[in-house]
Design a protein around this nucleic acid. Structure first.
Length: 478
RNA sequence: UCCUGCUUAGCUCAGUUGGUUAGAGCAUCUGACUGUUAAUCAGAGGGUCUCUGGUUCAAGUCCAGAAGCAGGAGCCA
């Protein structure tokens, strides 16, 4: 059996007039003669021309949408318009039939909602092929960025016992009998008899463990699955998603912002250079989708423009307090166009406020810092003003919060006070507090939601379409 | 979880004030054509109108409940 050549290699090469073997799936079969074959290496199909007059009719009938084929033939310059090269097929082997009457993917446009119902087959569409190739580039870029800077990739646990972070509802992990679990005298479930001898959950964040690593290895990052049992039904939330969490000893909030901004720019840059074809396709897809909308709702920049704009411009950095002033003085607020009007300092910003800052006021990514301590987590470093903490959120157009991070509170006494105030059990967190007892030092880190990055770079509208098998309330099929 | 809207053929949708046999385009199948690019032309098949209950002589159409989907909000990454 001759070795197969990938379609991406054939199309991008300047070579012609040579024999090749290609294997892939039929996208369309036109005119009993032209097979558009795709093997996933690129969004482009290879046009394979069959000599239908000298081919067994039974074989021709089996060339249907979705069928897997192995084709041998000569690669020649195409006679038709629309492609540079094509294959003059000499041998057809049907590897796998696809019953055209039952195959759900048709050679036509499908709605994303319909494709979500057949997520096991949607990889075979142009859109999902492109999205998943871009996703792959971004995942690799994450590692590249940190590895180049000498970070250690740290594997933090998926199953955790700590439930003190307040990062959200957790999925419990248990092997106890669901009908008749062992009970304590007060009627509560006795987790001492469970697998781990205590109550355990799926992780909601690897941050606390990453901090432990950073306090010895200096620079670490995690990149793994994260779980939230929140009943969130939005285009930006998943119950299972991938998160990147770097943690760096001796970094302050400014270093932290530089690290995050650099990471985002590097990843986008990598996608632009490695997935030019896919992004061109997604750019087109988004443009067509935007055209369906009323003019007022269309975004000013196309996908590629938006990505380039992000790479080329510095993100705007300002404090929460400055942001509140801008919002309070905005015409939008004065004309009462916000659903939640900005009246004073201290409240959390709503999505509409974040969107206003990013999409209307600055028109570029924004990093907000120094939030009121009452609306942020216990581990964030307290500022001298007694009101704010060294937090940072990076806001992206169309996505909202893509990164959330902070400089951590390294002073034991202040950290303990904050934990007391927020009713976080210090005893259970002795291991975390030990880092502050023995050789504590300033350090900072952040969490980047991987799917939100993919969402932004691909221009897709729903986070359920940028992860192969989305997990969300009422849905864990496939 | 809350608010709003939607659910009719494989897909995308139309369906009038409740009234005969529920339509179109695409897809599929059959035939024709054969350098096509969402091929074209002719013909055919294809429906538990999301589900449950109710109102009515009569319900795709009206009412109630449930489920799913979409958009927005909250939670956040």
């Amino acid at each position: 059996m001759s070795k197969r050549t990938k379609i991406a290699a054939i199309i991008s090469s300047e070579k012609a007039n040579y024999e090749a073997t290609v294997k892939g799936w039929v996208r369309t079969f036109r005119n009993n003669q032209f097979i558009a074959l795709n093997d996933g290496s690129t969004n482009n199909n290879l046009q394979c021309v069959v000599d239908f007059q000298n081919t067994d009719e039974a074989v021709l009938k089996r060339i249907t949408t979705g069928a897997a084929l192995s084709l041998v033939g000569e690669i020649i310059p195409s006679q038709g318009k629309g492609q540079k090269y094509e294959m003059k097929v000499s041998t057809i082997e049907i590897l796998g039939d696809s019953d055209a009457e039952k195959y759900p993917l048709q050679p036509k446009k499908h709605s994303l909602e319909f494709l979500r119902e057949i997520a096991h087959l949607r990889f075979r569409t142009n859109t999902f092929g492109a999205v998943n190739r871009v996703r792959n580039t971004l995942a690799y870029a994450i590692h590249e960025y940190f590895q180049q800077q000498g970070f250690v990739y740290l594997h933090t646990p998926i199953i955790t016992a700590s439930d003190a972070e307040g990062a959200g509802q957790m999925f419990s992990v248990s092997v106890l009998d669901k009908i008749n679990p062992p009970k304590n005298e007060d009627g509560t479930i006795n987790y001492k008899e469970d697998f781990f001898g205590r109550s355990t959950n799926l992780t909601v964040s690897g941050q606390l463990e990453a901090e432990l690593g950073a306090m010895a290895l200096s620079e670490v990052y995690t990149f793994g699955p994260t779980f939230r049992a929140e009943n969130s039904n939005t285009t930006r939330h998943l119950a299972e998603f991938w998160m990147i969490e770097p943690e760096v000893a001796f970094n302050d909030l400014h270093d932290n912002m530089d690290l995050a901004e650099g990471l985002l720019k590097f990843c986008i840059q990598q996608a632009l250079s490695k997935n030019a074809d896919d992004l061109e396709f997604l750019n087109q897809r988004l443009a067509e989708e935007e055209n369906q909308k009323p003019t007022a709702e269309r975004s000013e920049l196309g996908l590629l423009q938006r990505l380039n704009f992000c790479v080329e411009n510095d993100f705007v950095r300002l404090t929460y307090t400055e942001a509140i002033d801008i919002l309070k003085d905005s015409n939008h607020n004065k004309k009462k166009k916000f659903q939640y009007l900005i009246e004073g300092w201290g409240v959390d910003l709503q999505s509409e406020h974040e969107r206003y800052l990013v999409e209307k006021h600055f028109k570029k990514p924004v990093i907000l810092t120094d939030y009121p301590k009452d609306i942020k987590a216990f581990y964030m470093r307290q500022n001298d003003d007694g009101k704010t903490v060294r937090a940072m959120d990076i806001l992206f157009p169309g996505i909202g919060e893509i990164v959330g991070g902070s400089q951590r509170e390294e002073r034991l006494e202040l950290l303990e006070n904050r934990m007391d105030e927020m009713h976080i059990p210090k005893e259970e967190m002795y291991w975390y507090l030990d880092t502050r007892r023995f050789g504590t030092c300033p350090h900072a880190g952040f969490g980047l939601g991987f799917e939100r990055l993919v969402l932004f770079v691909t221009g897709m509208g729903n986070i359920r379409d940028v992860i192969p098998f989305p997990r969300f309330p009422k849905s864990a099929e496939f």
